[in-house]
Design a protein around this nucleic acid. Sequence first.
RNA 1: GGCCCUAUCGUCUAUCGGUUAGGACACAAGCUUUUCAAGCUUGGAAGCCGGGUUCGACUCCCGGUAGGGUCACCA
Length: 412
Amino acid sequence: MSQKIITRFPPSPTGPMHIGNVRTALFNYLYAKQNSGDFIVRVEDTDKARSKKEHEEGMLESLEWLGLKRNGELWHQSERTEIYKKYLQKLIDLGKAYISTETEGDPTSPRLRGTWNREVIRFKNPNKQVTFEDLVRGTVGFDTRELGDFIIAKNLEEPLYHLAVVVDDFESGVTHVIRGEDHISNTPRQILLQEAIGAPRPVYAHLPLILASDRSKLSKRKHGESVSLGYYREKGYLPQAILNYMALLGWNPGTDQEIFTLDELIKVFNISKIHKGGAIFDEKKLEWMNKQHINLLSPEEKQKIIAREFDVTSVPVIDKTKVCWKDVSQSETLKHLERAVEIIKNNGDLMAYAIEMGKASPSQSRGRGNVLWPLRYALTGLEKSPDPFTLIAILGVEESIKRVEKVIELLK
RNA sequence: GGCCCUAUCGUCUAUCGGUUAGGACACAAGCUUUUCAAGCUUGGAAGCCGGGUUCGACUCCCGGUAGGGUCACCA
């Protein structure tokens, strides 16, 4: 209780924000916030060749858009070379790491990739059994002998992932490491390094993977654009909906409630109820959830989204045969539209008129639709669109009248 | 292949030894019509297989099968 909880989100700026990144960030955020802790962000850009500034900016902007605010300074691993060097040197001096001469033909040497160095720094593996408690998977044991003397740096100036992560988590006081299941086999390596530099062990929680519909891990290479956050953002999904959906993938509150705001999630989130099995990402459900969140919006915000979705600003293309509602005659429809224009002009009560006409309707099958349908259709030329009141509010009185009058001319 | 993990409707899931196996998305049919990015009604839809344990297994144990993750001088 005395120790402040610190979680972290460490994106590698080698591509756009991934849907899996979103969930990792969210769970770290939720856990930190519900424990009055800090959620920190650091950029893992030790790989100079693959890291791009534009991706870093994209990641940061995405977090902002999602509303996941970080605490503290933003760290860049690329700016911490001297610090890693210090640890590396210490490890070497202590005999816990060593400079290894690689021979090209050596089958025990990792396979070649990019520039190949003759000398690398390897960690002297104590070859022991490592066991750790994972908040989602319970006790996990590994025999680190399988790992060998793994490489922790290309040289003193170029540390590799494991070393940098362990040093940074230590120096920034990270207490909980919440990350994807694909990192679970990295954990024993990192624990070994922690022990070597004398760092405390954080609590781990490995999240189940988000799967594509074929049950394989979501990857850009295999599944294309639909793995990136930007794809959903452009399609008009609200950040609240995306976050809500991600939270419910592999976790549930144990009640029937499905719609949550971020603040509600912070309250109800329970890390120990996270599943161990992966879950398929279903855009249909996200879509539904997005609608639910739109309904939570203020009328103004809602109108903006509707306007964008239905593209009401473009000039409607009218099909004469679709203007009339059900079996309502063209002359009657014309009458309703003309009257509607007058009412709109005078800022009158359109609804009252529609109800009146609905009551006056001789046919049981007709109601207010005989007024409202042609109006809505005249305004957009779309068979599916928001109600005419919303449309008029979005388009403005002038433009609305112009559009309706055009249809009146067409019918005459 | 080694190591690790998982297994309930098509999908996300509830169930923590006794339920007509519940909910949501999607789907189908219908109603409603301020139609929709509203609502309502109804319907079809699931415990991978085989052994145990037990009075009783979806639930616990073992095996099989299937699927997934991971095995870089990437992170």
